[in-house]
Amino acid sequence: MTDHVVKTITDPSFLIALLVGIAVFATVFTALPALGANPLKSRMKAVALERDELRARQRARLAAEADRRRKGLREEQSVGMRNIVERLDLKRALVDEATLNKLKVAGFRGENPLTRFLFFRLVLPFVGLVLAVLYVFVLGALPDQPMFMKIFVCIIAAYAGFYLPVLYVTNRATKRKQSIQQAWPDALDLTLICVESGMSIEAAIRRVADEIGAQSVDLAEELILTNAELSYLQERRQAYENLAARTGLEAVKGVTQALIQAERYGTPVGQALRVLANESREMRMNAAEKKAAALPPKLTVPMILFFLPVLFAVILGPVGIQVSERGSFF
């Protein structure tokens, strides 16, 4: 057995195979750190790819939304709708500066939304009146009420149809203002970072519009429109004032006034933006604290109506079962 082992070890072919195996192992062991990927580098690469994908999806969504809005603003008006509005001169009768500002705050710009708004304010009262007449007189609703009450219900339905477009625009404007107000402090922080890094205000607004779309598409749209107005308007002050008018927020108005003063007197924009960003963030925090403080009074009635009866049933239920089984408490 020993002779066989010694013969095998001293065999030249075995020695060559052993040396080749050792050389291969040493080569692999030496090259393994270079071939293996750095975990931190791989993670950073994955994060960068994910960020690029998120930006690409967000930009595609913003582009689709902008195309949809652009098509909605530029599409052909109905000839009959426009003719009716022009013949009855509804713009002079129903449109004032407050109505135009409300439409702008709601995101409706141009002549097409205004024409539709006036047309529906003209048509919906008759629609509501017809529906109320069918419901009351044809279907026999309110049979016990006198004729005066039935006519009054029909008039109320027509009046509601007249103000239904106003309610829709108001609701749309409120939701849009809330969306812009929630994302405005973050937009100011991003603008401050861009300005302090050496970017111009136009490039900063464009950059912020690309990044803030994930939080508020409405704010991104307004910033893009402001950037376009800064490019072609003769007075940059008008672009800032238009932004404040379209949003209808005091926080935005304060920032635009600071930008106008910076443009006029050459004062640094970064310090003003920092102060205004802190104020906007504090205002948002105060609004959240106000809502939180209003929760206890709002929860009182639901607790009395829903929680307490269930609690009493859970506590007194076994006692009631015992009394029903035994006929007494003892």
Rank of each mutant, 00 (worst) to 15 (best):
D11P: 04
K91V: 14
V24Y: 09
Q145T: 02
Q261T: 11
S42P: 01
Q145L: 09
E75D: 15
T2K: 08
P318E: 15
Q178A: 09
L19T: 05
S231M: 05
R237F: 08
A277P: 03
K104Q: 12
G140N: 06
P33S: 02
L88S: 05
P33W: 08
V252C: 10
A63S: 15
P165T: 06
G266Q: 02
R116D: 14
E97V: 07
F108S: 02
L308M: 14
L18M: 12
I224Y: 04
V6F: 06
N171S: 15
V323K: 02
A313Y: 11
E282F: 05
G198V: 01
S179Q: 14
R264D: 13
Q145I: 03
L49C: 04
V127K: 09
K91W: 12
F137S: 13
E202Q: 05
V85E: 09
T30E: 06
E86R: 11
V138L: 14
I321H: 07
S179C: 09
E279M: 11
C154W: 01
L15N: 01
Q234V: 00
V252G: 09
G270M: 02
D52Q: 12
F14V: 13
V301S: 02
L122D: 00
R70I: 08
A31N: 08
F162Q: 00
A56R: 11
L311F: 10
V314N: 12
A293Q: 14
L90C: 06
V153P: 09
A228W: 08
L311P: 05
I201D: 03
L32W: 13
N171I: 13
L131P: 06
V138P: 12
G248K: 12
S197M: 04
F137C: 12
A294I: 01
L114E: 00
R55N: 07
L100K: 04
I9L: 15
K71W: 12
A245I: 07
K91H: 14
G213R: 02
A173Y: 10
A63L: 15
E76L: 04
E325W: 10
Y163K: 15
R92F: 08
E279C: 04
G21F: 07
E279L: 12
A60P: 10
L142N: 07
N38P: 10
H4V: 12
L49I: 02
E97F: 08
E76R: 11
E289N: 09
K102H: 03
G270C: 02
A48Y: 03
F108E: 07
L19H: 00
G327H: 12
K291P: 02
T27A: 13
V6T: 01
L259D: 03
E53C: 05
